[in-house]
C-alpha cells in the first residue's frame, strides 16, 4: 500500500474541484425518476432502480471528463515527473491513480445517491435492503470499470487530445450511448442472421453482444438483482419489453427464449464477469505499456 498517499492526494484534489460536485448535482436531478411501469413491477424497490440510472450517460461522461488527463495530462505538463521520483513502481503509480480517482468520484456520487435513496424511501416506503446493497456493490464495481478504462487510455496514449478523442468517441459514443442501437445491425452483418429488434431471434450471440459494453453488463447484473428482466437495457426498458402488450426495441432474453432455454452465458451473473473483464483487461494492457516505455 505504498501508493496509498498518492491515491489519497488524487482523491483530495478531485474533491476540491468543481467537477465532481457538478456530477453529484447532475445525479440528483437525473436519477430520481419514479414511473408507474416500474412501480407496478417493483413496488418500493423502485428506489433501488434509481441507482441504476446513474449508469448509462452521466457517470461515464463524468468519469471521462474527470479522468482522461490523469496520466496523459501529467505527462504533457511534466507533473508526472514528481510522481515518477517517488519510491513507487510504475504499477503502483497506476494503482494509486485508479484508486484515487475512483474514491474522488465515488464519494460525491454516493452522497448524491444517498439523498436520492432517502427521498425514495420517504416517498415510496422501504425497499429490500439486501437488494439495495447488492445493487450498490455492483454500482461501485461499474464505476471502477469506468475509471479503469479511462485511466488505462490515459496511461497508454502520449497526448491528452488523443486520450480525449479515444474516450469521447470510442468509449462514450460507440460503447456507451450508441452500443445498444448498433448491436442488432452489427450482429446481423457478422452472423448473417436478420435481426428485428422489436422481435429478436433466439440468438445467444446477439444477446451476449448487447451486454458486452460496461453499461450493458452493469444493467444486466442490476436488473438481475432487481428481478426486472434479463436485459442489458436499463430497468424501465427491460420491464417494458417483457410486457406482452408492448412492443419495444430493447432486447430482453425472456422475449426471445422460452423459460429455461437461454444459454448459460446469458445468466445475469455474467454481467459481473463482464464488468470484471472491463477492469482487468484495460488495466493489464495499460500496465504492460506504462511499465515498458519512456515516460519523460
Amino acid at each position: 500500500m505504498r501508493w496509498y498517499p498518492l491515491a489519497r492526494e488524487e482523491a483530495r484534489a478531485l474533491l476540491r474541484s468543481k467537477g465532481v460536485w457538478l456530477l453529484a448535482l447532475a445525479l440528483l436531478l437525473w436519477t430520481y425518476r419514479p414511473s408507474y411501469t416500474v412501480w407496478n413491477e417493483l413496488g418500493p424497490d423502485m428506489t433501488i432502480g434509481f441507482l441504476q440510472f446513474a449508469g448509462g450517460i452521466v457517470v461515464p461522461i463524468a468519469a471521462v471528463i474527470l479522468g482522461y488527463r490523469a496520466i496523459a495530462g501529467e505527462r504533457a505538463s511534466g507533473s508526472l515527473k514528481l510522481l515518477l521520483g517517488l519510491p513507487l513502481t510504475r504499477g503502483e503509480i497506476l494503482a494509486g491513480k485508479v484508486v484515487g480517482r475512483l474514491a474522488g468520484i465515488a464519494i460525491p456520487m454516493v452522497l448524491a445517491l444517498g439523498i436520492v435513496t432517502a427521498a425514495g424511501v420517504v416517498q415510496y416506503g422501504l425497499f429490500s435492503p439486501r437488494r439495495y446493497l447488492a445493487v450498490f456493490a455492483v454500482t461501485v464495481l461499474y464505476l471502477l470499470a469506468l475509471v479503469s478504462i479511462v485511466i488505462s487510455v490515459s496511461a497508454i496514449v502520449r497526448r491528452t487530445t488523443t486520450a480525449a478523442a479515444m474516450l469521447f468517441i470510442g468509449f462514450i459514443l460507440l460503447l456507451d450511448i450508441g452500443w445498444q442501437m448498433f448491436v442488432p445491425g452489427i450482429y446481423s452483418r457478422l452472423a448473417g442472421v436478420p435481426v428485428n429488434p422489436y422481435d429478436p431471434p433466439a440468438e445467444g450471440g446477439l444477446f451476449l453482444m448487447d451486454r458486452l459494453s460496461p453499461t450493458g453488463a452493469y444493467n444486466v447484473a442490476t436488473n438481475g438483482i432487481l428481478d426486472a428482466g434479463n436485459s442489458a437495457w436499463h430497468h424501465p426498458s427491460a420491464i417494458w419489453a417483457l410486457q406482452p402488450s408492448h412492443s419495444s426495441n430493447a432486447l430482453a432474453v425472456g422475449e426471445a427464449f422460452d423459460p429455461g432455454t437461454a444459454p448459460l452465458y446469458l445468466h445475469e451473473a455474467g454481467g459481473v464477469v463482464i464488468l470484471v473483464a472491463w477492469i482487468v483487461v484495460p488495466l493489464s494492457i495499460a500496465y504492460l505499456r506504462f511499465d515498458e516505455g519512456d515516460l519523460a
Binding site: E9, A13, R16, S77, G78, S79, K81, L82, G85, A296
Partner: peptide, 10 residues
C-alpha cells in the same frame, strides 16, 4: 527534475 510542473489546485 527539470521541466516539471507543479499541481494546480494543490
Amino acid at each position: 527534475p527539470d521541466g516539471f510542473s507543479v499541481y494546480e489546485n494543490r
